[in-house]
Design a protein around this nucleic acid. Structure first.
Ligand code: MN
Ligand code: MN
Ligand code: ZN
Ligand code: ZN
Lengths: 135, 135
DNA sequence: CATAAATTTGTAATCATTACAAATATAAAT
DNA sequence: ATTTATATTTGTAATGATTACAAATTTATG
């Protein structure tokens, strides 16, 4: 996928910083925090400012190509995948997995007459790998 | 329900402040923020400190009689209901509704081999009332 | 090339939360 | 009842993430 193109399509001028930040989000798929994005790009872009990372992510969210994931109440993470999906966070290794769910099953009968705009599903526990390694 | 009793059962000494804070949480059922709890109790307990509210909620969570609800990534709310349930937040009036969901439908096939500890479901949109009043 | 507009950057301000130590209240011991 | 120890509450300072803002830089336009 052509990132510059993707940004342009969504009314975002593809500056160098914006391309690099989106590229990181999209390719790593690791639901990073602002700090993680900054630390991973400042090597390649020595002048990068953390404010730019904040501004850029806010712009991405505004234009609808990025979403936030708040599993822990003290850290905001970002995600370039915009299709409805949930997240599993392993409390042992910290990894975050994408999980699919059937929207109908979640936003159910009790929300009759309500207009649903977005749904977030967050599951915590221990992942397959961590459970296996423990033995 | 006897609040002092409930606290004692969960290994929490029922001080005046603790009882009042739990009472507020339990009776209002409004998923308040720390600030809201503080503002609502400081009239009755003029010496109350916001630090005490923070400390007390942390203790409640630790002892398993309170949980956090993080729908917006910039405000933490608290809930005395410990049964698994989700939340709907109306983006128009700000009200938060409890919603039931079938756990099996949410933590599904993709989590085979994973150990699920807790699940949070957050839905945003417009509530019945706000949709009706708009007309 | 000159000028305007957009983007990035660095620093200061803000706000929620936590750390910490003093003050107060409760319980235990004499 | 008085002293002593323990638990709880309180106020203030520190921390850390995010935002505000203005200067500096880059990109677009005439
Ligand atoms: Mn994701
Ligand atoms: Mn609830
Ligand atoms: Zn793991
Ligand atoms: Zn509403």
């Amino acid at each position: 996928m052509n990132i510059a193109q993707h940004l342009s399509t969504h009314d975002i001028k593809p500056s160098y910083q914006r391309i690099k930040i989106y590229e990181y989000l999209y390719e790593k798929m690791n639901h990073p925090t602002v700090d993680l994005i900054y630390k991973n790009l400042v090597g390649e872009i020595p002048t990068l400012s953390k404010t730019t990372v904040y501004n850029t992510l806010k712009l991405f969210i505004d234009k609808g190509i990025t979403s936030t994931v708040t599993i822990e109440d003290n850290e905001v993470r970002y995600d370039a995948i915009m299709d409805a999906h949930g997240h599993f966070k392993c409390t042992a290794c910290g990894a975050i997995y994408d999980i699919k769910y059937d929207f109908k099953d979640v936003a159910m009968n009790e929300l009759k007459g309500f207009e649903v705009k977005e749904t977030q599903v967050h599951v915590k526990g221990k992942c397959n790998q961590c459970l296996t390694n423990k033995n």
